[in-house]
Design a protein around this nucleic acid. Structure first.
Length: 409
DNA sequence: TCTGGGGTCCTCGGGCCC
DNA sequence: TCTGGGGCCCGAGGACCC
């Protein structure tokens, strides 16, 4: 689903349809927009549901934005000016100063994302979640899934999503996930593309290598330096040559991918590996001069990760920090401890020790806290109640962690 | 000039053990 | 006893994705 964020915003602000709009950047919320509106036009009663009535002229413009941040997504009208995802806002402001800038409302996005996925699951239960606006679906066992090469089912799903959410989406139908992902890009927005195995040479080989999900800017630059621009050129290379230049694993994978081979199954459920919270500061901070401010942010990040773990029912035992200096270099440190935990104070204490192992002479722009090596609390407790020999280690650690949490709150 | 936040996975090097 | 190598784990960094 392309431009999911922009699409959700356009549902709430239909008056912005067709205009250049970028989403991202600031920390402002919708309430602030209404607050400004109440100040500017006190004669009218502005309520939370009045978003569609806000005059276009009132929306903040990119050129008036001061601060750091990147674009999460942009409407097609804005993309015509060359702005797009991951671009810095300052640069975007030069390309399209008149674009309207809206903040991201993650609550709203999550709401639509859940609706989008539950709608699909009702039709095709074998669905893999690939983030807020993307899924893989296994059509093979769905009744009617093979009719007209999958097009009927794709249409049905598109219509169900439109009815449930008001959003459009693009669908790619193909023999595997790799090709399906590429096919979904062929007809954006709101299209359906069907790519069969025999279409590989005509549809896939002319594309740039970068279109392969997994070949990013670095790998693409290296391929180009070796004279390889298209997937077809990549496919023409011998396996040993690819392994020589990209290593055993990546080389072999590139070889398979360029020939359209991909045997990854659709994965219905997966356990998280880590959870983290990070924040980029409004201005760069110094470890000594801004010690109090940094300390408060650090504590808050630890509390947020702990709350995330507890809410989702996980404990972890690898605690780490991440920081990014003003020169954009990143450093990480982590430490694995004996006991599983989801306790904010424990996380803060171990993360604090990690912080001591990293140079703090330069100014910082970002600080993050991560907890990895996760175990599900349910599992730990279940295995404890099923165990004849009393609590397992993992369960005992988890129970200790809960007890600590209860003391805290 | 500027570059978010939340993830996963891979690679590489070092330490340890056999 | 010395040396080499393989397997494994951990930590750090980086590529990539949405």
């Amino acid at each position: 689903m392309d431009a999911f964020f922009a699409s959700v915003e356009l549902l709430r602000y239909p008056q912005l349809k067709g205009l250049p709009v970028v989403i991202g950047g600031g920390r402002r919320r919708e309430d602030d927009l209404l607050e400004r509106l109440r100040l500017a036009q006190p004669e009218r009663e502005w309520a939370a549901g009045d978003l569609a009535a806000i005059p276009v002229d009132f929306f903040p413009r990119l050129k008036d934005y001061t601060g750091r941040g990147v674009i999460t997504t942009a409407t097609y009208a804005a993309r015509q000016f060359g702005v797009g995802s991951a671009m810095g806002l300052m640069k975007a402001a030069r390309l399209c100063p008149q674009a309207i800038l809206l903040p991201v409302d993650f609550e709203e996005i999550r709401k639509y994302s859940r609706l989008f996925k539950s709608t699909i699951r009702e039709i095709a239960p074998l669905m893999e979640d690939r983030g807020v606006d993307e899924v893989y679906i296994d059509f093979t066992e769905v009744p009617g899934g093979q009719r007209s090469g999958g097009r009927s089912l794709a249409r049905l799903i598109q219509k169900a999503i439109l009815d449930a959410t008001g959003l459009t989406c693009s669908v790619g139908v193909a023999p595997n996930k790799l090709i399906a992902k590429m096919a979904s890009e062929f007809n954006k927005p709101n299209g359906i593309s069907i790519v069969l195995e025999e279409d590989l040479q005509s549809s896939i080989w002319p594309l740039a290598c970068r279109k392969i999900n997994g070949i990013g800017p670095k790998a693409d630059a290296k391929l180009q330096s070796l004279g390889i621009e298209t997937i077809g050129q990549l496919a023409a290379k011998e396996l040993p040559w690819l392994i020589e230049h990209f290593g055993r694993k990546t080389g072999a994978w590139m070889h398979e991918a360029s020939h359209g081979h991909d045997d990854r199954p659709v994965v219905l459920e997966s356990e998280p590996v880590s959870m983290s919270r990070e924040t980029t500061f409004e201005r760069d901070l110094h470890a000594v001069r801004d010690r109090a401010e940094l300390g408060a942010i650090f504590t808050r990040l630890c509390e947020q990760v702990a709350a995330d773990l507890q809410r989702k029912g996980y404990v972890g035992k690898t605690i780490g920090i991440k920081l990014r200096y003003d020169n954009f270099k990143t450093a990480t440190r982590d430490q694995t401890v004996e006991q599983f935990t989801a306790d904010a104070r424990t996380i803060r204490q171990i993360a604090g020790q990690c912080l001591k192992r990293v140079p703090l002479d330069k100014r910082l722009r970002l600080l993050g806290v991560r907890v990895g090596t996760l175990a599900s609390l349910d599992e730990a407790v279940d295995s404890a109640s099923n165990s004849s020999s009393g609590l397992t280690n993992k369960a005992q650690e988890a129970m200790d962690s809960i007890a600590k949490t209860e003391q805290l709150f």
